[in-house]
Write a protein that binds this DNA or RNA. Structure first.
Lengths: 347, 347
DNA sequence: ATCCTCCGTGTAATCGATTCCACGAGGAGG
DNA sequence: CCTCCTCGTGGAATCGATTACACGGAGGAT
C-alpha cells in the first residue's frame, strides 16, 4: 500500500507538502497541490488512518455498547447513531453486550484500547469498575436509554411515565382491573422505572400491584415466556400482561399460544417499545413507542459536544402510547381522557 | 493516559523490557516481569492499540459490510460473525449499506483506511470499483450471503434450491397452481438465484411463471407492499406469493391487510429467510430458513484463513423449508414427498 | 584460568502520518 | 540598494508501540 513517502517521491515534493496539500493547509502553491493530487491519483493513495490517529490523538470513531443487537429497538438505535455520526464525520464501532456484564466490560475495554474519541453506553448493569473508571478518567461518554445513577455523565433517554399512565387509563377503560407486569432486571434503570411508572399509574386508579403480578424478567424472550407461564398458573391470572420490552412480549405471546389461549380474548398483552413487527403479530400489539431515531441523534450530538470539551446536555424525550388490538377491541370511542396525544393505529 | 514509557519509568526498566514482559517474550527475568506487572497495575496501563497496529501492521479487526442492519437476517448474521471473531481474538466493525451502493462504498473505503485485517461483504450491487480494486489489491476478503461473480474471493452462502423445490412441492400439494414471486434486485446474486430456483421448481410441476407473476422488489418492506398490491390488482391474482426475503414478506402482509383480505384464505404467503417473528405473525409464516449462525461462523473462519495467507475455502450450506400456516392449513398428513428434511413447526 | 555461549537488558530504528521550526526567494517599503 | 516581511517549502521531531542489534555478566567447557 502506497504511503505518504511514495506520494512525495512521485510528486517531487516533501512529505510535509503532501500532508499540507491533502489537509487543505493554506500555504501550498497551486502547482505543488496539483502535482500532489496527480500523484495521489496515479498511486491510488489513501492516508493511513492508524498513523494519523497516533499522531493527532483522535480516531474520529465513536464506540457504542448496546445491551442486545437482536432487539429491534437497539438495532434501530444503533442505526440512527451511525447515521448521525456519519453526518458528523465519525465512524461507529458497535459492541453487543447481549445483556451480559462481562461482555459489556470486554467491549468497553477493547474500545478504550482503540482510543475511540467517545463512548455511548446503554449499561447492562449497575456499572462495571472499568466503565466507572473510564467515566472518571474523563473519557467523553454519554448514556443512552439506560444510565447509571451517581455518575456525572449526560443521559439521553425517553420518559415513558406519561405513556404508561395512558396505557393504564386505556386498560382501565376497557374494563381490565387485574394488571400484571413482566419487569426488566432491577440492575437497569429502565427495568426499575417501568415498574415504578406502572405501579404509580395503577395507584391513580386505586388498583393494587401485588407481588404475584410482578414477574422478574431479563429483557430476553425466554424470560417473558417463563414469567407469563407463571402468571397463567396463578389461581387468579391477570387480565392483561404488560411486558417491559418487546422481546419479553414476544415470549409472552409464545407462552399464551403454547397453552392454546388467545390474545386478547383470554389474556391481554401490551409492551414497552414499539417495533414494526407488532403491526403484524396476531393480534397487533398495543405498545409504547419511543422516539428511537431522535434518541440516537441526540445522543451522538451530546457526545460530540463532550468530545469538543463542552458540557453536552442530558435529553429526555417523551414516549407515546400506540393502541392496537392486543388488550381488547376498543369500542370505537376514545377509551379514556388523556392530556397527552394518543395515536390510534389499526392496520 | 499512561504510556509504555511511564510504565518503564515506574518499573525502573526500559520500554523494551516492558513490551517483552507484556507480550510473553521468553527472555525476561521473573523479577523484571513482576516489577513491570506491578507498575502496570498501579498506573492502570493499557497498551495503545493504535500505536501497536501502526508498528505491527495488523489491527486484529475485521470489517463487515452488510446490506441492511434492520433486516433480522443480517442482524443475526452480524451477531454470529462478531461472536466467532471475538473467539478468534478479532474485533468487528460493522458497516450498514442500507442497500445503497454509495453507502457500501463509503464503508468499504473507511474500513480500508483503518487498515482492517480482513473484509466480509454482502454486496448490495454488482461490485463497486473500490471493492473490486480492494479484492485485486489483495485485501483478505470473503463474500457472505451474496457475492460477485468473476471475482476471486471465497463465498460463504446458503443454497436454497432444494428448499425452494420443497416449498413448491408443498404448495402444489395444497392445490395451489398460480404462484407468484416478489424478487430481489437483479444486481444481487440472491435476487437472481431465488427467482431461478423458483422458476425451475415450478417447471418440474409443469407450472409456468408468467412475467406478471414476477414482481421486482428491492429487499425492503415498501417494495413488497407495492408489488403485492400489483398482484392483487391483476385480473387473475396469484394464489400464493413467495417473497424473496423477510422484509418484503412483511410488506406483502401489509398490503393484504390493507385490502381487508386474509392470509391464507384469500392469498397465501411464503418467505425466504426465517426469523423469530414469523412464528408470531397472523398467521405464522411458512419460510425457508438459512443456517445463519453457521454462515457467520464459516465466513469468519474462511476470512481468518485468508488473513493467515492460506486459501480460505468457499462454503455452501443448505437451507430448509419450515412449514407453517400462511399457505393454507396442511391436512395433517405429509403434504408432499421430499427426500430432504422438512420440519413442521406449529406454535 | 580462559574462552565461548547464552541470557537479560538497553539503545535505537521503525511504522505513517502531522506539525514546529528554519530557510531561501521574492516583493514591498524606505 | 538595503532591509524586512511573507510565502512556500523541506528537515526533523513526535505520537506509542515492537524488535533488531549490541553489550555486559554469569556459567560451562576445556
Amino acid at each position: 500500500m502506497a504511503s505518504i513517502k511514495d506520494v512525495a517521491a512521485e510528486a517531487g515534493v516533501s512529505v510535509a507538502t503532501v500532508s499540507r496539500a491533502l489537509n487543505g493547509h493554506p500555504s501550498v502553491s497551486p502547482a505543488a497541490r496539483a502535482r500532489v493530487l496527480a500523484a495521489v491519483e496515479t498511486l491510488g493513495y489513501r492516508p493511513n488512518a492508524v498513523a494519523r490517529s497516533l499522531r493527532t490523538d483522535q480516531t474520529r470513531t465513536l464506540g457504542l455498547v448496546i445491551s442486545d443487537v437482536m432487539n429491534p429497538y437497539f438495532t434501530e438505535l444503533a442505526r440512527s447513531v451511525e447515521e448521525e455520526a456519519r453526518a458528523l464525520g465519525y465512524s461507529v464501532i458497535i459492541g453487543n453486550a447481549d445483556e451480559r456484564p462481562d461482555l459489556q466490560d470486554h467491549h468497553v475495554t477493547t474500545l478504550l484500547d482503540r482510543r475511540i474519541d467517545g463512548l455511548l453506553v446503554s449499561p447492562t448493569d449497575g456499572g462495571s469498575p472499568r466503565m466507572l473508571e473510564a467515566a472518571r478518567a474523563g473519557t467523553p461518554m454519554v448514556f443512552v436509554d439506560r444510565w447509571i445513577p451517581g455518575v456525572d455523565v449526560p443521559v439521553v433517554r425517553s420518559d415513558g411515565r406519561a405513556a404508561v399512565r395512558d396505557l393504564v387509563a386505556h386498560l382501565h377503560g376497557l374494563g381490565h382491573r387485574r394488571l400484571a407486569i413482566i419487569a426488566g432486571p432491577a440492575a437497569t434503570t429502565t427495568g426499575r422505572e417501568r415498574v415504578d411508572a406502572f405501579r404509580e399509574a395503577l395507584a391513580a386508579y386505586g388498583l393494587p400491584l401485588p407481588d404475584a403480578y410482578i414477574g422478574q424478567g431479563d429483557f430476553q424472550a425466554g424470560s417473558g415466556r417463563r414469567v407469563t407461564e407463571g402468571f397463567l398458573d396463578l389461581p387468579e391470572p391477570p387480565e392483561v400482561v404488560f411486558a417491559a420490552d418487546n422481546l419479553m412480549a414476544l415470549g409472552a405471546l409464545d407462552a399464551v399460544r403454547a397453552r392454546g389461549l388467545r390474545v386478547p380474548e383470554d389474556i391481554g398483552l401490551a409492551a414497552f417499545d414499539d417495533i414494526p413487527w407488532f403491526l403484524h403479530t396476531g393480534p397487533p400489539v398495543t405498545a409504547i413507542a419511543q422516539p428511537t431515531r431522535d434518541l440516537g441523534r441526540a445522543a451522538v450530538r451530546a457526545l460530540v459536544e463532550r468530545i469538543a470539551g463542552r458540557a453536552g446536555a442530558s435529553v429526555t424525550l417523551p414516549a407515546r402510547l400506540v393502541v392496537r388490538r392486543s388488550c381488547g377491541e376498543p369500542d370505537g370511542t376514545t377509551p379514556h381522557q388523556s392530556p397527552s396525544p394518543v395515536r390510534r393505529s389499526t392496520p
